Simulated assay, not measured.
Amino acid sequence: MKVPGAVSGRVRPLWVAAECAVTLGLVLLLFVAHQLWWTNRQAQQGAAREVSALERAWAEGAAVGPGPDRAHAVLVIPRLRLRAPVVEGVGRAEVLDKGFVGHYPGTARPGRPGNLALAGHRTTHGEPFRHLDRLEAGDEVRVETRDAVHTYVVDSTLPQTAPGDSGVLRPVPRSDVRPSYGYRERGHYLTLTTCTPAYTSTYRLVVWGKLRSVRLR
């Protein structure tokens, strides 16, 4: 004869474990939704406001210099339908997690000789560089400032390198990890960097371009 209390005693731990599993699943689902949807929405809206504020300042004749808390340029990539604010620095919390594109300190300014190097998230937090791998040779990338529009043309892509490959940021960019990628002569270069593969930070994807024209406003 079965004793009800004994049966329920054996079942109760299984029931508690099932409840914990369901709760954990819901928490993970909410976390994923937060990372993939909510952070993107917040960052994209914030980036759009930053671009609008910067363009209003330009229209009013205000001078907006580089700084860690304000945009000083706008990156435009027609193929990706991207229009993002450029902020000084590449700190995660201060710049990239806000959906901004960060300017590597010490690299060239728009239109100047050397290497203008920029970084952006590929996934979550606005993911401005989500489809950076879709850029092809000949695609235009514009960097707009108060005084001019600097048009670069994509020249080559380094599909994968180590996060510490500092050679890609030099005035004449060239990969230290994969020396066959990069340049040997001085020029006016643009370097765009992001994480790869998507949803990881294991490696870096690098897209290079050369300055084609500068149109004064």
Rank of each mutant, 00 (worst) to 15 (best):
A57Q: 06
A71P: 00
E50F: 02
V177K: 01
R130K: 15
A33R: 13
S180D: 07
D69M: 07
V74G: 00
A73D: 03
V76T: 11
L205E: 01
G114S: 02
P13A: 07
E88N: 12
K210T: 11
P78L: 05
P197N: 12
T151N: 05
L96M: 03
E60V: 06
L36A: 12
R112N: 00
L29F: 06
N40V: 01
L26S: 10
D139W: 10
P113W: 06
V177T: 09
G61M: 08
L190N: 01
L216Q: 15
H72T: 02
F129V: 07
V27D: 04
A6S: 08
H150M: 11
G187L: 08
P105C: 14
H188C: 07
Y203G: 00
R178L: 09
S156D: 14
T161E: 01
T193I: 09
N115K: 05
R41N: 05
F129T: 00
W208Y: 12
E19D: 10
V214K: 01
P163T: 12
T157L: 14
E19I: 13
G164T: 05
C20F: 08
R83A: 06
L24W: 08
V149L: 14
L216W: 06
L132Q: 00
S175E: 09
W15G: 09
T124Q: 13
W38G: 01
V143Q: 04
E60I: 03
C20T: 14
R178C: 05
R56Y: 03
V168A: 00
D133T: 01
E19C: 14
R130M: 09
H125D: 09
A53M: 09
K2P: 02
T151V: 15
P4M: 10
H188L: 14
E94P: 05
H121C: 10
P173Q: 07
T123R: 12
L75P: 00
L24N: 05
G102K: 03
A53V: 11
A198G: 11
P163I: 08
G209D: 02
G9F: 13
R204D: 02
V149T: 15
V7L: 07
N40P: 06
G111D: 05
